[in-house]
Design a protein around this nucleic acid. Structure first.
Lengths: 112, 112
DNA sequence: CGTTATACTTTGGAATTCTATGTATATAGA
DNA sequence: TCTATATACATAGAATTCCAAAGTATAACG
């Protein structure tokens, strides 16, 4: 299982990325993340929903309740323009840190 | 500047990676991180030292005070075997998350 | 009709974090 | 010589963040 810190650091870009592929709702996003990660990342509903609320308050996504043909109501989320911009920022930052780590993963100890 | 979450997620592997290159001490580690990241990651001393203490308590690093030829005492840290193992674990996890993100960064929106 | 899956919400105890503050020595420069 | 800055480490506790747990409700399946 992925550590708490890494999960926290990746939650925002993962959700924004999924919503950029197309609108979705909480329950489905949880399943999608599990699927994308091959089961290695698994969000509980109590973890994901508050994040969605926060992202909406930040203006990165927006929601509307929908009746998908006679079934129960679902709250569909859509990424906003601001959200798309934020995703780019997240990408840049992630890649900067990734670059630092790539120089460190496989270092040989210096001859001390 | 790198976001708080990303900083938190990368602190442990970065410190372990730096110490794998060779022993070092707090003040120098801070400078090293700044240098490696081209100034994009900057730790305050109040941020770094508690992390070093925590990693030592976890057994991933160990310390000893040294007098570097007449200068003031410095607390040198060294990575332990356990620390090296942990670094591998961190690497695997990071790369798993990185793989998920790589599938998402550049997705084209589906024709909705 | 009972059980499981779907679907969303909220709260508050728990854990984490880092800002601010404190101590002390070495060095550069005025 | 004196002052300012850089070096070097430590820690309390205010502030923030987090997520496990509990709650509500409907659909689907056997």
């Amino acid at each position: 299982m992925i550590s708490k810190n890494l999960t926290a650091a990746s939650t925002k870009p993962i959700i924004l990325g999924i919503l950029k592929q197309g609108n979705s709702y909480g329950y489905l996003i949880i399943k999608k993340i599990k699927e994308l990660s091959g089961g290695k990342m698994e969000y509980s509903d109590g973890m994901l929903y508050p994040v969605l609320h926060r992202l909406e308050k930040e203006g990165l996504i927006k929601s509307n309740w929908t009746m998908d043909g006679g079934t129960r109501p679902r709250k569909y989320y859509e990424i906003t323009e601001q959200g798309k911009t934020e995703l780019v920022t997240e990408k840049v930052q992630w890649q900067q840190v990734n670059a630092v780590l790539n120089t460190l993963w496989d270092v040989k100890p210096s001859t001390t």
